[in-house]
Structures are given as structure tokens and as C-alpha cells.
Write a protein that binds this DNA or RNA. Structure first.
Length: 261
DNA sequence: ATGCCTAAGCCCCTTAGA
């Protein structure tokens, strides 16, 4: 059974590519980030037509997350983490959606980028990570097979970026960001890609600018963290790298795990 | 030191991304 995460950077602009990927790789569960549409604009019928049922949490212009499942309706558990955005009075951003699908708890997230650093957006990122940790701890004690996946916007270690020096000032790899991420792992969660690729050098994102894709200047910021109940069933993990090189591609590639049963 | 590139909005420039 394949479970995937894909930051698609706009569901309207990406729809042909997204459907192509779903039909080619046929994940049982597909979590999307940055759908960049309000709830009304979500193309649910397009996914129904190829056998996927969905739940989604949209927002105007930015952010937005969705969970698709092959032939079954995801059962929503929670949306949002109860934390307001960094601008005065904007309310909560659409960055978190949790569901149960086929006996698996699926927590789909789009973590704040946090640039520029330092500043209110960086503070928001760190506060969001604390909220996420609280939620992960609450799910952990339920002892259900759980995957917490999505665009974490954190480069965990120097082996996860093409040139640490080039990114040194970026919010994605500040010590505070890394420490907050390390605390999640220290709670016991298993980073699926890292466990199977301990030497690093695996990228999930390549910038649109400066020929980053052609030069393979990427980094790893999309992660799948597994609870012990699911880590025991992990058989493979990978990145659908070739999708980054296609026409009208997202700047992220899909990442996935294969689990037993 | 800066732009590089892309998506969306209410719109031919700004905001946001990472």
C-alpha cells in the first residue's frame, strides 16, 4: 500500500500533471499541499472521475491541504491546529488536515516557510512547530498506525541540502528550525526517507530559479514521519524525481512510502 | 547585493513562495 505526499503549488495550474501522477503511481492515499484555492474551487469531480475520494481545507490564494484516497472516503478527524497566522486579525491559515483512511491515521501538513529570518514569520513557524508537536503527542498516545507527512519546510541536516553554505541564512535550516524538528524525531517518530537513505543526498524540492533543477541543486523538506505501529510495516520509500522535470511541474516532487498490507 | 522563476489575484503590478 502506497502513501504519498505532494506539494503541488497550485491545484488549478497543476491539475493535468496531478491526474497524470495519480494514474501512473496510483497511491492508495495522496496528501496534497499548497492547493491555493478556496474550498469552492477544489476540483473534486476531477478526482472522482479517476476513482479518488477527497477531503480538503482551502484558503484564498495561498496554502491549502487535501487528502485523496483510492476508492474510499477519508474520514476527517481534525482541521487546523488552533494557531492564527502572523498578520493581525487574519485568523488560522489552511495548513493542517487529519483523517483516518483504511485504519491509518493520516496527518497532512504544510508547515510555514518562516522566511525572512529573523522576523514575525519565523516566530510563527516556530510556534506552529510547537503546536504540531502537541498534536503529534496526542495522536501518539492513541497507539494507532500514524503517518505525519507533508511539506515541513525544514532541512533536517546538512546532508539534506546540495550546498549548506548557499542556504545558511534561510529559515529552512536555522538551528531553531532544526532543533524543533529534531524534537519531533526524539519523541520517537521515524523519518521514512532518512531511515532508508541514511547517507543523505535525497532531494524533494528544486527551486524554479537559477537552473536549480538542471544543476540538481535541491534539498529535502518533504517528510513522512511514522509512528511505531506503521514504522514496523515500512518496506520502501522514495521520491518520484522525474516529475520535477516535466512540463508545468511543481517545484516539489512527490514523496512516498510503501507499507506492508 | 540582486535577480533568477512561478502562481494567483483583480490585474498588467504586487504578494508569496523557499
Amino acid at each position: 500500500m502506497k502513501i504519498a505526499s505532494f506539494n503541488i503549488n497550485g491545484i488549478k495550474a497543476r491539475l493535468p500533471r496531478l491526474k497524470e501522477w495519480l494514474e501512473e503511481s496510483r497511491p492508495a492515499i495522496a496528501c496534497l499541499q499548497e492547493i491555493k484555492t478556496m474550498d469552492e474551487g477544489f476540483p473534486a469531480s476531477e478526482f472522482e472521475a479517476i476513482g479518488y475520494k477527497a477531503i480538503w481545507h482551502g484558503q484564498k490564494s495561498f496554502n491549502g491541504v487535501a487528502i485523496l484516497a483510492d476508492g474510499v472516503q477519508p474520514k476527517e478527524i481534525q482541521r487546523g491546529l488552533g494557531i492564527d497566522g502572523p498578520k493581525e486579525g487574519e485568523g488560522e491559515q489552511a495548513r493542517y488536515l487529519e483523517a483516518e483512511v483504511s485504519g491509518i491515521r493520516v496527518c497532512n501538513l504544510y508547515l510555514p516557510n518562516g522566511n525572512p529570518h529573523p522576523g514575525p514569520k519565523f516566530d510563527y513557524k516556530l510556534a506552529w512547530m510547537e503546536k504540531l508537536r502537541e498534536r503529534m503527542r496526542a495522536v501518539w498516545i492513541e497507539e494507532v498506525p500514524t503517518v505525519v507527512l507533508g511539506d515541513y519546510n525544514v532541512i533536517p541536516e546538512n546532508k539534506d541540502v546540495w550546498a549548506p553554505k548557499a542556504m545558511a541564512q534561510d529559515a529552512l535550516m536555522q538551528p531553531e528550525s532544526r532543533n524543533a524538528h529534531a524534537r519531533l524525531l526524539a519523541d520517537g517518530w521515524t523519518d521514512a526517507i532518512d531511515t532508508l537513505n541514511p547517507r543523505g543526498g535525497v532531494w524533494t524540492y528544486w527551486d524554479y530559479q537559477a537552473g536549480a533543477w538542471q544543476r540538481d541543486h535541491g534539498f529535502r523538506i518533504d517528510h513522512l514521519l511514522l509512528s511505531p505501529e506503521l514504522a514496523d510495516r515500512l518496506v520502501a520509500a522514495g521520491v518520484d524525481k522525474d516529475h520535477r522535470g516535466r512540463e508545468k511541474a511543481s517545484d516539489h516532487s512527490p514523496v512516498w512510502i510503501e507499507i506492508d498490507r
